[in-house]
Design a protein around this nucleic acid. Structure first.
Length: 276
DNA sequence: CTATAAACCTGCTGGC
DNA sequence: TGCCAGCAGGTTTATA
């Protein structure tokens, strides 16, 4: 769920509502949520910081603070970042809470406890984010860039799309949706795709992500927006979690296979296991 | 380099 | 209704 589209949507919401707010008090209910630095230092450094900007890289939310500090949040499988109005009850599974000096609070909840927060000095941020591939929605992500990534390996194309070192921000949902929209079978070797297929995949990745953002993300399970609301992209998905249901393009039942240890959904008619 | 499995965690679903 | 196995949006690390 929290893939690029979900993180981007929340980042945009945060820009509308918490820029300029000061963090007054920090509570850490599950210490392992904080990967770096240690919890006492984390709390000490964060206290009194003003939220100056909100950005995103891959699936990581970046909260830029005063005094050249950056708070990063990776929600992994089940994390949510939500705004609590003054007096609002905490969400279930709250792991970290940032109380703002205006009475509101930013709550991080995460039932599975996989998500992580970290605090970096600005100078250390580039190194922390260095291993990500290009941003799919950045103008620099051209067909030629995608072609070069695909040509570099014989791995299954779906496995490559999930690899954050290759391309940043795609997860299981949007990888499946991108491949369906492009008419490409997930098991095809990445370096076997035709130039026509590469161009189709490039367009599909961008379209699928932009649609996901426009719909407020895909709530399959527990993704929530910054104001606690569900995203509506689930009803627009064409293959993900639709095993056995008719393809919205041709009516053929959607099939589920396993690729790179991940459930993978495809239309065997729209996504033939061949090139051209 | 590539692939696979396990680990980190808990909740939910489906089968019996 | 109740219990249990298996599965889930992600990433990292160890092993082959």
């Amino acid at each position: 769920m929290p893939e690029l589209a979900e993180v981007e949507y929340v980042a945009r919401q945060m820009r509308m509502s918490v820029l300029g707010a000061r963090i007054a008090q920090i509570t850490v209910a599950w210490p392992r949520t904080i990967s770096v630095p240690d919890v006492p230092t984390f709390i000490h450094l964060l206290s009194g910081q003003v939220i100056e900007a909100i950005e995103r890289r891959a699936k990581v939310l970046l909260i830029m603070l005063s005094i050249d500090l950056v708070l990063t949040v990776h929600r992994r499988m089940s994390g949510n970042v939500e705004l609590l109005e003054a007096g609002a009850p905490p969400p279930r599974y709250e792991r970290v809470r940032l109380e703002l000096d205006d009475g509101r609070a930013i709550a991080y909840s995460d039932p599975r406890k996989f998500g992580r927060m970290a605090l970096y000095a600005g100078v250390d941020l580039p190194a922390a984010l260095a291993d990500f591939g290009p941003e799919p929605l950045d103008p620099e992500f051209t067909v030629a860039v995608l072609a070069r990534i695909l040509a570099s390996t014989p791995r299954a194309v779906k496995a490559l799309l999930l690899d954050q070192h290759a391309i940043a921000g795609l997860g299981n949902i949007y990888a499946d949706e991108s491949l369906h929209a492009a008419g490409i079978h997930p098991l095809l070797p990445a370096n076997s795709l035709s130039s026509t297929q590469i161009a189709a995949l490039h367009a599909a990745i961008i379209a699928v992500l932009q649609l996901g953002i426009a719909h407020g993300g895909t709530t399959f399970g527990r993704h929530r927006g910054f104001y606690g609301e569900v995203g509506h992209n689930l009803e627009h998905l064409r293959v993900y979690q639709r095993t056995g249901e008719p393809c919205r393009t041709c009516g053929t039942p959607i099939v589920r296979i396993v690729v790179a240890q991940r459930g993978t959904h495809l239309c065997p008619n729209c996504q033939p296991n061949t090139h051209s």
